[in-house]
């Protein structure tokens, strides 16, 4: 079971629930291909460090999933490219340290929501 994680930014023009629907659409693409969704996060409207398509904010969301057939990464990315409300996406493969980190992050061990500052990283010894 290979683990992947994809972060993508949606156009801020969309309303909140429109953004949620497009996220659902991508999740459906994954579940249809029998991928197991490990974690789904919606960071909401966030300010970006630089302008993309001369917009300075965007809906950030993250989907972490695990799958056997790695062919679905290609289909997922073509879905991203086809949908013009997606401004940017990044899919990364996760090794075992990354999976362990994400599991701890999901438990809230770094006790930070996206807004607050994280706990000092030094004590977060893995």
């Amino acid at each position: 079971m290979k683990n992947y994680e994809t972060v993508f930014i949606l156009n801020p023009v969309l309303s909140e629930d429109q953004a949620k629907d497009t996220v659902e659409k991508f999740v459906k693409v994954l579940t249809k291909a029998k991928a197991e969704i490990v974690n789904k996060e919606f960071w909401g409207l966030k300010k970006m460090a630089y302008e993309i398509q001369n917009k300075s904010t965007g809906f950030y969301n993250l989907i972490e999933f695990a799958t056997e057939n790695t062919g679905i990464i290609l289909t997922l990315e073509t879905e991203f490219r086809r949908d013009e409300s997606v401004m940017r996406f990044l899919t990364t493969a996760l090794d075992k340290h990354a999976v362990a980190y994400n599991a701890r992050r999901k438990k809230g061990e770094f006790n930070r929501t996206k807004k607050t500052a994280p706990k000092k990283r030094e004590e977060a010894a893995v």
Binding site: V7, L62, T92, D95, H97, A98, A100, Y101, R105, A117, P118, R121, E122, E123, A124, A125, V126
Partner: peptide, 18 residues
């Protein structure tokens, strides 16, 4: 090397403060 000393194995690209 702060990573060897504190034993951090994975550096998260989603965490700007770090």
């Amino acid at each position: 090397c702060r990573f060897k000393k504190s034993g951090i194995k994975y550096i998260d690209y989603k965490d700007p403060d770090f």
